[in-house]
Computed example of a mutant assay.
Amino acid sequence: MAAIPLTSRGVERLNQELHRLKTVERPAVINAIAEARAQGDLSENAEYEAARERQGFIEGRIAELEGTLSNAQVIDPTALKNTDGRVVFGATVEIEDLESGDRLAYQIVGDAESDIKASLISVSSPVARALIGKSEGDVVEVRAPSGVREYEVIGVRYV
């Protein structure tokens, strides 16, 4: 399997989720299954079915997290000082929408840690792909479902 790029903060967040799933969620669902079994007939037991479904989700997420973490290539954004101000994986980029004048700041992270609400965009997103390699002052075009948008790179930070 190919290396999965993650920031050090992303690895920490995924490790915390994995720990919570293994130490809190998994034991809780095992107890719920045991309680539902104690009620008798499993063929018409909605609590049992719901608990088994939840267990399947938890086990699948644990396997996904373990696979991601085992193939993680950890990149520390603070160690990226020698990029001549260019946008690279892990950089935080401030951009301005040339049409509306809105300013946005995003950190470019791996697919597994992206969260648009936290301003973390995936390196494979159209915006990140357009920004990679650009410098402060450059204008980029992003093809979005709503049409082509133009953004100016206002600043690049490695934090």
Score class of each variant (00 low, 15 high):
Gly110Met: 02
Asn82Gln: 10
Leu80Val: 01
Gly155Ile: 01
Arg86Tyr: 00
Asp84Lys: 08
Asp97Lys: 01
Gly90Ile: 00
Ile75Gly: 08
His19Asn: 11
Arg54Lys: 04
Leu14Val: 09
Ala38Asp: 12
Val88Arg: 11
Pro27Arg: 09
Arg9Trp: 09
Tyr48Ala: 03
Leu21Ser: 02
Gln16Gly: 14
Gly137Gln: 05
Ala50Glu: 14
Tyr106Arg: 13
Asn15Gly: 04
Ile30Trp: 01
Ile75Tyr: 08
Ser70Ile: 06
Arg9Thr: 08
Asp76Trp: 13
Val153Tyr: 05
Arg149Gln: 07
Asp41Glu: 11
Glu141His: 01
Ala32Met: 07
Leu69Met: 09
Gly110Ile: 04
Glu35Lys: 15
Arg26Ile: 07
Val153Phe: 03
Leu42Lys: 06
Arg20Phe: 10
Arg129Lys: 14
Ala144Trp: 09
Val93Thr: 09
Pro145Ser: 03
Tyr106Phe: 15
Ala51Ile: 12
Pro145Lys: 08
Ser119Val: 00
Arg54Ser: 11
Leu14Trp: 02
Gln39Ile: 06
Ser114Asp: 06
Arg20Ile: 04
Glu47Gln: 14
Leu120Asp: 04
Ala32His: 05
Asp84Pro: 03
Glu141Asp: 07
Ala34Ser: 15
Ile116Lys: 12
Val142Tyr: 05
Glu47Phe: 02
Gly133Asn: 00
Leu120Val: 02
Ala50Pro: 06
Ile75Val: 14
Arg26Pro: 00
Gly40Cys: 09
Gln73Trp: 07
Ser124Phe: 01
Gly10Arg: 07
Ala128Lys: 06
Gly110Gln: 00
Tyr158Lys: 03
Glu35Ala: 15
Arg9Leu: 12
Val109Asn: 08
Leu14Met: 11
Ala50Gly: 09
Ser114Gln: 13
Thr92Ala: 10
Ser125Met: 09
Gly40Thr: 08
Arg86Gly: 05
Met1Ile: 12
Val159Met: 08
Ala32Leu: 05
Ile58Phe: 08
Val159Arg: 13
Ala2Thr: 12
Val29Phe: 14
Glu59Phe: 13
Val142Asp: 04
Val11Glu: 09
Leu120Lys: 12
Arg9Gln: 12
Thr92Ile: 11
Ala72Gly: 12
Gly85Trp: 06
Ile58Cys: 04
Ser135Phe: 01
Gly10Gln: 02
Pro145Glu: 10
Asn82Cys: 01
Tyr151Lys: 02
Leu104Pro: 03
Gln73Glu: 14
Gly137His: 07
Gly40Pro: 06
Leu104His: 15
Tyr48Met: 04
Lys134Pro: 03
Ala130Ser: 13
Ser124Pro: 02
Thr23Phe: 05
Ser124Arg: 15
Glu94Lys: 15
Ser122Leu: 13
Val148Trp: 00
Ser100Gln: 10
Ile33Pro: 06
Ala79Val: 06
Ile4Gly: 03
Gly90Asn: 07
Ala50His: 11
Lys81Cys: 00
Ile95Phe: 12
Thr68Ala: 05
Gln73Gly: 01
Asn45Ile: 11
Ser119Thr: 02
Ile4Lys: 06
Glu47Asn: 15
Lys134Val: 00
Gly10Val: 09
Ala105Arg: 15
Gly101Asn: 13
Val87Gly: 11
Arg149Thr: 00
Thr23Asn: 14
Pro145Trp: 10
Arg157Cys: 02
Ile75Phe: 10
Arg86Lys: 13
Glu17Pro: 08
Ala118Ser: 15
Pro27Glu: 06
Arg86Asn: 05
